[in-house]
Simulated scan of single mutants.
Amino acid sequence: MDIGQVHIGWLGDHIEGFNSQAGANVWRTPLTLSEQIRLTRRVMLHALVTFAPLAERVSMAAVPGNHGETVRIAGRGLTRYDDSHDTESLIAVHDAAQFNPDAFDHVAIHVPETDELTVVVDVAGTVVAHAHGHQWQPGRHFDWWKGQAFNKDSAMHRADLLVAGHLHHELVDSDGPRTFIQTPALESESTWWRHATGTPGHPGLIVAITKDGNTNIKEVVR
């Protein structure tokens, strides 16, 4: 079966960073900030090179997470909401792809507009909204979505599917025709979380098939 479009969502916290939690994770982070950003960029580039030959159209979208914020002072982000290593890494990959239009002219890259945190993309007739997930309290994803959709200037009112990360475990929920997918994290363990709850890491990816507003096939790949 021919694949008309492949879409990859990068849902934030692509790096551990040193701003989140007021730097509490610095000692436990084996890579420098530059190395984390470089690794993220190379993983994104690998995805581009891998999937570009497989479909007529390839798209990738990245949104900012709380760990990827570039600047915090006294625990607060002081620049724009889109000022993020998470999205800048994908922008760098896009810049590189521009040098080879023969291989990548069918690839579209999406990041938030100025001072925004979300991206909305049409994927095979399904309007997919991307958010990191730190904008709402756990379990309140539909409340947040409804609030965003009430804003006439927001594209969230058109979304069929909302995808997010942040909370590290998979969750699939629906409200009428709309679907919410929360992806698991790729980390093997948060030692703090294991000490607090007893739950170890369970890394994975979610692969879904969507068309014309319907996302009926969803699989966790570990």
Rank of each mutant, 00 (worst) to 15 (best):
V119N: 04
V119P: 05
V120M: 12
V121E: 08
V123N: 00
A124G: 11
G125A: 10
G125V: 12
V127H: 01
V127R: 03
A129E: 05
H132R: 03
G133L: 01
G133P: 03
H134D: 15
Q137F: 05
P138Y: 02
P138H: 01
R140D: 14
H141C: 05
H141M: 12
H141P: 06
F142P: 05
D143T: 11
D143N: 04
W144F: 07
K146M: 12
G147A: 08
Q148N: 05
Q148G: 04
A149I: 06
N151K: 07
N151R: 10
D153C: 10
S154E: 15
A155M: 12
H157A: 13
H157R: 15
A159Q: 03
D160S: 09
H166N: 11
L167M: 14
L167D: 14
H169D: 10
H169R: 10
H169Y: 10
E170M: 08
L171K: 13
V172E: 13
V172I: 15
D173M: 14
D175S: 13
D175T: 12
F180Y: 15
I181V: 15
Q182H: 10
T183H: 10
T183K: 03
T183Y: 09
P184H: 02
A185N: 07
A185C: 10
A185V: 12
S188H: 07
S188L: 06
E189R: 01
E189Q: 03
T191Q: 06
H195P: 06
H195S: 08
A196P: 05
